[in-house]
Design a protein around this nucleic acid. Sequence first.
DNA 1: GCGTTACATTGAAAACCATCAATATTGACG
DNA 2: CGTCAATATTGATGGTTTTCAATGTAACGC
Lengths: 140, 140
Amino acid sequence: MPATTSERQLGQRCCLPLPPETLDGDTAEALTADLEMLAHPIRLRLLSVLAKAPEPACVCDLEAVVPVKQPTVSHHLKLLRSAGLVRSERRGHWTYYSVKPEALQGLRRRIVAGLDHLGAGAIPTERPTSTNHSTADTHP
Amino acid sequence: MPATTSERQLGQRCCLPLPPETLDGDTAEALTADLEMLAHPIRLRLLSVLAKAPEPACVCDLEAVVPVKQPTVSHHLKLLRSAGLVRSERRGHWTYYSVKPEALQGLRRRIVAGLDHLGAGAIPTERPTSTNHSTADTHP
DNA sequence: GCGTTACATTGAAAACCATCAATATTGACG
DNA sequence: CGTCAATATTGATGGTTTTCAATGTAACGC
């Protein structure tokens, strides 16, 4: 371990007093899962249509609304269903899908909470940027 | 157009009066881009740390906080930067990153608006599910 | 039964993403 | 100049996701 020019060494941990209370790994992964489920244009549009439809919609309706083929629609519906966001019900030839409003709401709540927890909440009106701005070394 | 047994045919578009005002393709893709940027645990944690740090953090600080190697940290920081969510500033040996609070807020606003637009907003207190529930055909 | 329709599943191809070792770049210091 | 430390970039690898043609399955009508 070489000599020190100041009170801190290169090649070691630096300045931060280390995070106060940030997202831990598990929370981050849970939030990621929620975000990923929504992060696809087809799924967003399917959810959007289902959420606004006055009654459950059959797959052929949904197919008519997005620019992909039927197996792809089924695939995304399956994902949404396994995430608990929609339910399906068979009537005769058709399978009708509808949203589960509580689930969508829960998802929304978790995501908004996550965003708040990210610091995107309180409107700090631009950071004060503390005085420490010498171009030089020492690295607080 | 062939004969009809009732007022509707199989193999044709079905029941929905077609979407009232749902997300169009472009809106869905824009929202998807926002969601994707957040949908990664490493990026979430980096943002979380940066958002709460009292001053800009150097890469070695960030590296210490997430379970991936330095090139990966740089990679994610680059993504966050090109999305306009963080800024970087070089001081001596180190590169300091900080969030752009307005950008994080804008992101948050867009996502929340998207979620509301998805129907996850108004708490409709469980869908009434209109009377049409015969197991049979005719498919309204 | 047979044919037809709606939807699901399978399986394979393509595109994409994340990760890291190796290497390059930049800046400080002697 | 040369060396070292901090970060960026490159390139290769492995994994996941999206998509669709083909095929399977369930329900209806004849």
